[in-house]
């Protein structure tokens, strides 16, 4: 086996410099704290329980051997015994955004924990393209430490979904959840719910609004989601305020995020399913907040969402009822007195 360190692999400097400047800048603009992946310093990250844990990037040096090439768009490679460097583009699906990777839930993995150690040889063997990709259950199945995430139930629900019944060979956990960047979303209490919605919908739109990805799996034309949802009033607002799965997945009491995607004929189309006091959003999108007992929720208000028919502030309701009741009673009282006194004052 050849040691990859023996190969003279250089990265295009301009590209690296651009990435070094732009990535922290983009995070700064997005208002999120970047993980200093380049320098490898420990960085604090909150867990779902709200604790802050220090990350020790012990695998960085080893991963850097892969990321020398896989974190860049271009690779310059000079074969042993040759003075002729080869410059080629990295296949886009093989480029890893190190910042996102080290900010993900799987940040502490070495590349070869999931990928074959044969990848340590360069040029890589062609057959490695067909290596088995572990799914969630391969690592998390029957693990008491992860019991609260109900991975087995997720698998069960996925296998009952339309994605499995139609495309079981083409779709796996990683089709929706990016293996390198997967980050806890619905349970992230620090995150604005709009970000949770955008993150979740981006997963669906990764295929349903991407012709190449959709047609690769479905082998048919990709219907335009804005056209298929033309019936939906305030379409853009709905897309921004709720997740696709609110209407397209069956609610499951055990799971925080429903995974049983239904055939389109079974999708929710009745407004009152959400726009009512018994809104299904309370069992889906706002489930975690409700479990957490946010103060506004106690008042039966849902976050900062304006959801006509569902949001009922008990204070506003009580005030409304008092005002209307007082008016009606006042009118009835006055009217009664008029009738009584009219008889007396009539000449």
């Amino acid at each position: 086996m050849k040691n990859p360190a023996l190969f003279k692999i250089s990265i295009l400097d301009d590209n690296l410099h651009f990435a070094r400047v732009m990535i922290p800048l983009l995070f700064l603009l997005a208002g999120t704290a970047p993980i200093n992946a380049q320098e490898g310093e420990p960085t604090g990250q909150r867990t779902t329980e709200g604790e802050t844990v220090e990350k020790k990037f012990t695998n960085k040096e080893e991963n850097a051997l892969c990321l020398k090439c896989h974190a860049n768009k271009y690779v310059r490679f000079t074969p042993e015994g040759s003075d002729q460097p080869y410059i080629f583009k990295m296949y886009s699906d093989c480029i890893i955004d190190t910042t996102k990777y080290y900010a993900s839930n799987h940040w502490n993995f070495k590349c070869v924990d999931c990928h074959s150690s044969d990848y340590e040889t360069y040029p890589h063997l062609a057959g490695l393209r067909f290596e088995y990709m572990a799914t969630c259950l391969d690592c998390h199945g029957d693990d008491p430490e992860y019991a609260k995430f109900h991975f087995e139930k997720i698998q069960e629900q996925y296998e009952a979904s339309v994605h499995f019944s139609k495309y079981s060979n083409e779709i796996s956990c990683w089709s929706c959840h990016n293996s390198h960047y997967y980050k806890i979303n619905a349970r992230n209490r620090d995150q604005d719910i709009k970000m949770t919605i955008a993150y979740d919908n981006a997963i669906c739109l990764g295929c349903h609004a991407n012709t190449d990805n959709f047609e690769m799996i479905a082998e048919r034309l990709n219907p335009d989601v804005t056209t298929t949802h033309e019936w939906l009033p305030n379409q853009a607002n709905h897309f921004k305020s709720v997740r696709c799965i609110e209407c397209h997945a069956e609610i499951n009491d055990t799971l925080l995020v429903a995974h049983k995607i239904l055939p389109k004929e079974q999708a929710v189309k009745k407004c009152v399913e959400c726009h009512s006091s018994d809104s299904r959003l309370k069992a889906s999108l706002y489930k975690y907040q409700l479990e957490e007992g946010a103060s506004l929720v106690k008042d039966d208000m849902i976050g900062d969402a304006v959801l006509i028919g569902s949001r009922r502030s008990t204070t506003v309701n009580l005030l409304s009822n008092i005002l209307i009741l007082a008016t009606v009673l006042g009118i009835l009282g006055h009217w009664s007195l008029r009738i009584i006194t009219r008889k007396k004052t009539k000449p």
């Binding site: 900062d304 304006v306 502030s313 409304s320 005002l323 209307i324 009606v328 009118i331």
Partner: peptide
Amino acid sequence: SLIVADVIHVLMGIVLTMFMLIHLYFST
């Protein structure tokens, strides 16, 4: 926040409903 607009709209709707009831009564 749109919630503020929403709550004001609902409450003003109630106030104007009160006006409507009183207006109808005073018309008698």
